[in-house]
Design a protein around this nucleic acid. Structure first.
Lengths: 143, 143
DNA sequence: ACTCATTGTAATACCATAACTTACAATGAG
DNA sequence: CTCATTGTAAGTTATGGTATTACAATGAGT
């Protein structure tokens, strides 16, 4: 059981947009070759990031730009932009209402798990695009 | 994007086994009717829980029993018993090695995300079967 | 106004995996 | 020996992610 590619792809897109700002025009084809994924997926993801207000995309001429500084963009925003499910965990829909466990499991387990999901989102909020850029630059220096 | 049913199902199984201990024989058919799921799924899940040392299953005669007290069984153990993936997040497998972002993304983002996964597992470790049983009993009292 | 690379989006296909179902040999208490 | 039950295999169905093709809409540059 894993999360989909989506969030990591979105992160890589934003990192490229930030890193190549002013150097290359970051078109969907350009980004697709960094991620090694289909350009249509890039455009779809860029569309989600645009809806979330994280990037501007130049229709027609092409290329994307960040709307904020990398230090102002968190993993939480990126995650929320591309993952739309309200619930992280999937508790059975129709437990038996005649069973004391069945009729309470959604409420009881749901409470606990939603706390855990919120903790994860809080963790995401602590990581910015700038943190990741710094790590990449450090890795590049030591090559 | 959601986790599968597996962990919640396993939790409900264990809650039933604990709650009905000595009252009903908790066969796969009995458990299946509480969860409202196919008995084969129950048997498969019980098998995983048995491998993890959380339950004993009486082959032939039927029924399952906990091997520990509910206060000694954590959500983390249950999660690990039924979810076998090493990585929670799925970072693209073949990023472009000629791109400074592509050739570092796995390392850099992977580091951050593995910390977050471990935090989640720590959260799981803080919740015991007994906590959930208590919540269910409370909910039942106020009916 | 025209060109042309690019975006936005729809439609379709493909594939992996979860969940369902049927079936049946093996088990073990009574 | 019987019989309800477990363990497990095999096949089916459903869902969702990813890939791919196609094309109208966009808009800077000429």
């Amino acid at each position: 059981m894993q999360f989909s590619f989506r969030m990591p792809v979105a992160v890589q897109i934003l990192l490229c947009v930030a890193k190549f700002d002013g150097v290359f025009k970051t078109t969907s084809t350009f980004l697709a070759s960094s991620v090694n994924i289909n350009p249509v997926i890039i455009r779809k993801t860029l569309g989600q990031l645009k809806s979330a207000g994280l990037v501007e995309v130049a229709a027609g001429v092409g290329g994307a730009k960040l709307t904020k500084q990398p230090c102002e963009i968190t993993l939480q925003e990126i995650f929320n932009a591309v993952e739309d499910d309200e619930d992280l965990f999937h508790i059975q829909d129709n437990p038996n209402p005649n069973c004391p466990v069945g009729r309470n499991i959604q409420q009881v387990l749901g409470n606990k798990l939603s706390v855990i999901k919120n903790n994860m989102l809080d963790d995401f909020a602590k990581i910015t695009l700038e943190d990741l850029l710094d790590d990449i630059n450090k890795a590049e220096q030591s090559r």
